[in-house]
Design a protein around this nucleic acid. Structure first.
Lengths: 348, 348
DNA sequence: GCAGGCCGTGGAATCGATTACACGGCCGAC
DNA sequence: GTCGGCCGTGTAATCGATTCCACGGCCTGC
């Protein structure tokens, strides 16, 4: 592969001049400029980003460590992050932690070794020493979706409390009193916050949240299935299961279906995170929708601000309740038209 | 951030010795070795992958350019690719082409500039000059899922012909005669092959495939919706719609639902690519499942073989039909237990 | 006792870019 | 006419690693 030296030789100039042309430096004669451009064209030359990064100490690359690419929410987030980063002239390297702290550390380490300019993380756990050290050492970093308390890192996330409150109100209005939740891992903020918001909202309606109605999940489908089976085995099973993410809701569906129960007649189901498929499940699932694309964009902006020396800003956006039919009769005022799926809306 | 020089100074040895310790070179005294390791620990030193790559001309990184991360099939593929690559000591950088040739080129260019060791591509179009040049110039490359004819690049893919034949047989047995297909872009192999397999299979049953029953889609949900609406507007609409990927099936569902039609009574639906959600749609959707994880693994192996100087092998794996209820009454022999969703099966 | 080889080590070249600095030529100002 | 400054250009240092080569010391074999 041709190097800058080959281009210099072909154009009859020094490598310095070639470099100047490549970087649009003003003090190059028009003549030299055209000769260099011609040589670049003729040789099919492309600058070596590795060499450039070594010299300039910047890679124009951001790292994104997410918990699970198979989760449509994170896939959507990753896509929006890449899009926005590209618009700002950055590339993105995605690390999939698969909800495993060791894998998360692996990716963080690899990304740091590559000297990415900044790191976007949705932490799987309470924060490994590696990540905390990196943050303290001054690696530009922004938390997205989930975060770690006590670290001076901006956070971009959705606040679901109002939406969870709306959900409980909706369930209460439909006559449900025994509500259960499948929580995410307590080590993640989203894992504990959603339970907390749920508990608070239920408290406002005077409803108890017994321990037996709190299932422990790990944001994966299988855990949603197990937690739901446990609920259904109780002497007094809940009337509603609220899954703290969409994959656990999928597992809950599996479990409910395996018992031959009907939704919402035998048991109601709701989920955190809205995805296109929820429109077409049997029945369509009531969910709390996050402004996923906006979160991705805001996170990139915060990180790039930090990377380029501007003060970064934490951002919190509201989530909102999307009522469908999985919790009972739809509200009387519902429009007769089909509700478009969130995926398609986001494309318009 | 500490460099190898700092480590050398701290350990009282030369950089050459530090490098030897780091790379487990045998001829270093035990004493020097421990001093270097101590210095590495004390300084929290991590080798700079950028500098290393510049010197060694290898990045231990593979590029993966896929058409759409939001498509669960590709997300699954990406995950399996990353997993296998990690096991072999490689990182993966994913580029999401979003079915746009210009974006695909952008990612290929960026990846080549970064001097990745090899490239895994699922081409969006018939092959841009950029990609063809790269292949000819000797960049280690493997096509996965889709490919481009006339280029000497190994291909790892699924053969859906037998499964499509099984699908047509299934539909025929259920009494359906007017079958329509929503095709992918003709420029992609999967776009044209699936139509071709469908046409051949129908021919074997003496069924015609009029042009009006071939909808043109682009593997995105919105195009599936439009194609389906056009089918439903025909004087004689088809009895079955077969979507060539899962997102177009989602769009088809949207369209069918918007008209208030019932599946499978009013119209039947089947899809290429099986995903977990198809188990829980209303009704569960009959689909052709690809061995996605195996494809990812095989693709990585082929590419790494090529990168490391071994002869790479093309691989073709069979897809298979998964019958559910979206095309009509389930076969009498169906087991009463719920069918597990493919996502969960893949985790076991 | 001496030659040859091995072992551990350091010096220095190298990868491919960027950029500070120096230098020659030419211009305009005085 | 001379001098200062600017413009275009090239030389060389530099980024942080790897690795070839040379060198000194010691062991072994004859």
């Amino acid at each position: 592969m041709a190097s800058i030296k080959d281009v210099a030789a072909a154009a009859g100039v020094s490598v310095a001049t070639v470099s100047r042309v490549l970087n649009d430096h003003p003090s190059v004669s028009a003549d030299a400029r055209t000769r260099v451009r011609a040589a670049v064209e003729a040789l099919g030359y492309r600058p070596n980003a590795v060499a450039r990064s070594l010299r300039t100490h910047e890679t124009r690359t951001l790292g994104l460590v997410i918990s699970d690419v198979l989760n449509p929410y994170f896939a959507h987030l990753a896509r929006s992050v890449e899009e926005e980063a590209r618009a700002l002239g950055y590339s993105v390297i995605i690390g999939n932690a698969d909800e495993r702290p060791d894998l998360q550390d692996h990716h963080v380490r690899t990304l740091l070794d590559r000297r990415i300019d900044g790191l976007l993380v949705s932490p799987t756990d309470g924060g490994s020493p590696l990540m905390l050290d990196a943050a303290r050492a001054g690696t530009p970093m922004v938390f997205v979706d989930r975060w770690i308390a006590g670290v001076d890192v901006p956070v971009v996330r959705a606040d679901g409390r109002a939406a969870v409150h709306d959900l409980v109100a909706h369930l209460y209005a439909l006559g449900h009193r025994r509500l259960a939740i499948i929580a995410g891992p307590a080590a993640t903020t989203t894992g504990s916050e959603r339970v907390e918001a749920f508990r608070v909202a239920m408290g406002e309606y005077g409803l108890p949240l017994p321990d037996a109605y709190i299932g422990q999940g790990d944001f994966q489908a299988e855990s949603g299935r197990r937690a739901t089976e446990r609920f259904l085995d109780l002497a007094e099973p809940p009337e509603v299961v609220f899954a703290a993410d969409n994959l656990m809701a999928l597992g809950a569906l599996d479990a409910i279906r395996a018992r031959g129960l009907r939704i919402p007649d035998d048991i109601a189901l709701a989920a955190f995170d809205d995805i296109p498929w929820f429109v077409h499940t049997d029945p369509p699932i009531t969910a709390i929708a996050q402004p996923t694309a906006e979160l991705g964009r805001a996170a990139v902006h915060a990180l790039v601000d930090r990377v380029e020396g501007r003060p970064p800003e934490s951002v919190t956006l509201p989530a909102r309740l999307v009522v469908r039919r999985s919790c009972g009769e739809p509200p009387v005022a519902q429009a007769p038209t089909a509700q478009p799926s969130p995926l398609q809306r986001s494309k318009s």
